[in-house]
């Protein structure tokens, strides 16, 4: 499997709290990345399609009373596992950087 892209990892994080829809995911990604990532609709859905194809996310039931066009996504068990592996990988990288003195020690 190709490594998770930066945007894809953010999307998985955005779904960590529970099912969400495209607009909200986009807002979440923008906020969490401090505005560094601000995907357009097309880009975001291309990633969502890819994640769905790979079985990391799945469609979820929409809460009652929402716009019927609105589509909700949720993490699958595999999605959770991949997200956690990615976090572990990043953690290992950060630890390696600390050891080399490239990143200040935790206070």
């Amino acid at each position: 499997m190709t490594p998770l892209s930066d945007l894809a990892f953010h999307v998985l994080l955005a779904l960590g709290d529970g099912p969400s829809h495209g607009y909200a995911i986009g807002k979440n990604v923008e906020g969490r990345s401090g505005g560094r990532l601000d995907p357009t609709t097309g880009t975001l859905y291309q990633v969502l399609q890819r994640l769905a194809e790979d079985g990391l996310i799945a469609s979820a039931r929409s809460p009652a009373g929402t716009d019927e066009r609105r589509k909700y996504f949720a993490l699958t068990a595999q999605g959770r596992r991949v997200a956690s592996e990615e976090a572990g990988r990043l953690d290992a990288l950060v630890r390696a950087a600390r050891k080399l003195g490239l990143y200040p020690q935790r206070a």
Binding site: Y23, G42, Y45, R69, K71
Partner: peptide, 18 residues
């Protein structure tokens, strides 16, 4: 066409909100 087929309505919704 395939994005439209799968997520056309949802993307339209997100586009409108944005």
């Amino acid at each position: 066409p395939d994005l439209e087929r799968d997520y056309g309505a949802a993307m339209e919704d997100m586009f409108d909100s944005k």
